[in-house]
Amino acid sequence: MSVESTPSTEGAAVRRSAYDDATRARLDADATQVVARYPEARSALLPLLHLVQSEDGYVSPAGIAFCAQTLGLSTAEVSAVATFYTQYKRRPNGEYTVGVCTNTLCAVMGGDAIWEELSDHLGVGNDETTPDGAITLERVECNAACDYAPVVMVNWEFFDNQTPASAVETVDRLRAGEAVAPTRGAASVCSFKAMSRVLAGFPDGRADEGVGAGEATTRGTVLARERGWTAPPFPAADQAQPSDQVKGS
């Protein structure tokens, strides 16, 4: 999906209050799978809202109506839930959500400077989208990667140990339509819609891409091995503790 095609598609979505028959049939089939994962249907609402975003790039009026009809809720009930969670967008989102962590730890380590640089470079503020529809810039809260601070998330993939220059390079490449690889994640960042489909619980086959862990994650593991530190061995069992022999030295 190209960056250029995004605005027109989403412009059409804005005015749509119901899906055409083919789209509806496809979404119904997906929704059936989602609902089947839960003992009670209403639990499917959060994934269904992700599914709607994978179709429209935001939680559209048509999407709200679809969720309501699927789950036997009123549109007001669906809207009440959709507006509670920050990942559900009330306006068409850019192809890429670029989130700069500006919670305390990242902010102090340089996140504030990265934010200022990106905001000036892109000419947009918090939760605003560039005119070409490519980037929605956000200040995000702690994303559980503090040992890689300062952190930037692109469509919720990790970009670790960032600087203003590295963040600008990332957004420039995204806007140029290049494939951009996160530090810890899939081989390349996918689109907002593709990401939303995964979050609805539909795997995209990319789980085996990328690293298992970054350098900070394994620092304790590596240090312990260097120094010969181990947890006490399991008491002798019927097997000869093979788990301790694998990497004993």
């Binding site: 298992g212 862990a213 593991t221 590596v222 312990a224 120094r227 530190w229 947890a231 788990s243 990497k247």
Partner: peptide, 25 residues
């Protein structure tokens, strides 16, 4: 000292796979 139990094999090749997990107990 450190006592790696959960973290013991986090740096293994393709650490996230079931095969790696089974190989390490």
């Amino acid at each position: 000292t450190l006592t790696p139990v959960l973290t013991k094999h986090w740096d293994a090749e393709r650490s996230w796979t079931l095969a790696t997990y089974l190989k390490n107990g």
